[in-house]
Design a protein around this nucleic acid. Sequence first.
DNA 1: CGCAGCTCCTTGACGCGTCAACAAATTCCA
DNA 2: TGGAATTTGTTGACGCGTCAAGGAGCTGCG
Lengths: 154, 154
Amino acid sequence: MDDTPRWLTPDEQRVWRTFLRMQTQLTARLGRELQTESNLSMADYGVLVNLTDVPDGRMRFLELARAVEWEKSRMSHHIARMVRRGLVRREECPDDGRGAFIAITPEGRAAIEAAAPRHVEAVRRLVFDHLSSEQLAALDDISRQIVARTEQTP
Amino acid sequence: MDDTPRWLTPDEQRVWRTFLRMQTQLTARLGRELQTESNLSMADYGVLVNLTDVPDGRMRFLELARAVEWEKSRMSHHIARMVRRGLVRREECPDDGRGAFIAITPEGRAAIEAAAPRHVEAVRRLVFDHLSSEQLAALDDISRQIVARTEQTP
DNA sequence: CGCAGCTCCTTGACGCGTCAACAAATTCCA
DNA sequence: TGGAATTTGTTGACGCGTCAAGGAGCTGCG
C-alpha cells in the first residue's frame, strides 16, 4: 500500500499560496474599510442585508441564522451585541413561546443604507472592475465546484 | 454630479455571494479538519511551515511575522500560546538585546510533519483534484490581480 | 559622551467565534 | 392525557485578533 502523500506540484503550491493571500487580504481590506467608513463589521452587514431583504424587516431567529449560515450560538452572541448597539431589536413570537423575531431598527436601516454604496464600491474597485467576463465565469465555476465539494462530504 | 452607487449586476451579485460562501466554507472546513485531526490551527500551520523551511528551524521574530504577514502584536500573542503548547521556543538574540529568535521544537516538528500530509490531502480533495489546468490558470490570474489591487492602494 | 528618536517586542482590554451545558416551550405518541 | 424527545434559543468559558500604550535596547548626531 502506498501512503506517500500526494504533495502539491510547485505550480499548485504557488497558486494555493496566492489564493490564500488573496483571501486574507481581500477580507481584511473590505472589513477594514467597512469598519472605518461605516462602523459595521462584515458580520453586521450580512445580518442587516438579510433583514432589509424581507418586507417587514424582521425574521425568526433561526431563519436568520440559516440565511447567514451561522450556528445559533454565534447568532445569539452577535444579535446581543447588535441589540446593544441599537441596530436590531428582539420581538417576541406569539406563535411560539420559545421563539423570537429579530427586527431591524431605523438606526439599523440608516446604517446599512449608508454603508452599502461604499461597500459595493469597494467590492467593485478591488474585484469586479478588473475581471473580464471570462474571468467572472471562471470564478463562478470554481467557487461553485468548491462549495459543492465542501457540502457533499460531511 | 452623479453619486448613484454603481450596484453590482445580478450576475456579479450571484458570483460575489458564491465566492464569499466558498471562502468561508473552505477555510472553515480546512481549519476544522486540521484542528480535529492534528490539533493545529491554520495559524499554527503557517508558522510551523515557515520555520521548517529554514535550515536551522529558527527565525527572527519580525522576519517570521513578515513571512506570515501578521502584525507584531498578533505574532507576539500567538507565539506566546505556541510556546505554552511546546510547539516553539524563544531564544535570545546575541546581536540585539531587544530581539528574539523563534525556534521550532522537536514537538513542533513532529506536529507539522504529522499534519502536513493530511492537510495537503484535504486541499487536494476540496480544491485541486477537481480543477482543470485552465481553471488553475484562471484562479492564479484572478488571485494575483486581486492581490495586486489590494496592495497597490493604501 | 549624551540624549532624541527609532526599532523590536510585550501587554491589557475588548470584540468575536466555538464548544458544551443548559433552560424553556413544543411536539410526538403510547 | 402525560411524559419523553425535540426544537428554540441563551449562557459561560476560552482561544483568537486588533488596537493603543508602553518598555527596553539601539543608533545617529550634536
